[in-house]
Design a protein around this nucleic acid. Structure first.
Length: 195
DNA sequence: TCTGCGATAATA
DNA sequence: ATTATCGCAGAC
């Protein structure tokens, strides 16, 4: 790395998730135990204007962390067995954020394989929102943690690699409402993007 | 490689 | 009933 990696500041997250999402590409999700992966696929969820967002109908016990201060995890349980992680964005009360969908493992890879014994190659470790959380050991315990303070065990780093000049955008995956919005972005050509 | 389907339980 | 998914089985 050409310069020391720095944690993304609060102001980075405190914007529209459709602005934050493509800028999160090529940033590094990092855990204190050494696991690191470069974010290659994200989706924006836009609260009251977005029928596909968990926060569309207001705050509940489940989605409360998405309504809090920007730069915190919103981790939710779905399909009876999977966890997915978002970073909260915008202003307090907006209920907007960015879903982390896929990442390219960089470090702590043996820990990721241990957390995902069925993975056969690096591409299987973080190429999907629930795979990513499993590889990083993220679940209910991390819902609401602060990604900016550096004291929560997880953060997102800027290591000097800029986002792609032309990120690919398109419809979001796995939703049945608001399917027309092109609020998914990924790094073109990266094999760790989900299928 | 790709396609279709079952698992599995919280949420609203 | 639906779900911001995954991995397996079977076809090619």
């Amino acid at each position: 790395m050409s310069r020391r990696a720095s944690r993304l500041p609060r102001a980075f997250y405190r914007r529209d998730p459709r602005t934050v999402a493509p800028e999160l590409l090529n940033k590094v999700l990092a855990a204190d135990d050494g696991r690191q992966a470069r974010i290659v696929e994200v989706e924006a969820y836009c609260g009251p204007i977005d029928p596909a967002a968990h926060t569309y109908r207001g705050m509940t016990a489940r989605n409360a962390s998405m309504f809090g201060e920007a730069g915190h995890f919103y981790v939710y349980f779905t399909y009876g067995m999977h966890w997915c992680a978002n970073c909260s964005c915008g202003e307090v009360g907006e209920g907007v954020g960015v879903l982390l969908r896929a990442a390219e493992p960089l470090a702590g890879i043996e820990l990721m394989y241990a957390a995902r014994p069925k993975a056969r190659r690096d591409r299987d470790l973080c190429s999907g929102p629930a795979r990513l959380t499993q590889a990083f050991g993220i679940d209910r315990r991390q819902d609401g943690i602060d990604l900016v303070s550096g004291k929560s065990g997880y953060t997102i780093l800027d290591d000097g690699i800029p986002p792609p000049a032309e990120p690919v955008s398109g419809p979001r995956i796995g939703i049945s409402k608001a399917i027309d919005h092109p609020w998914r972005w990924y790094v073109p050509g990266n094999p760790h993007v989900s299928k």
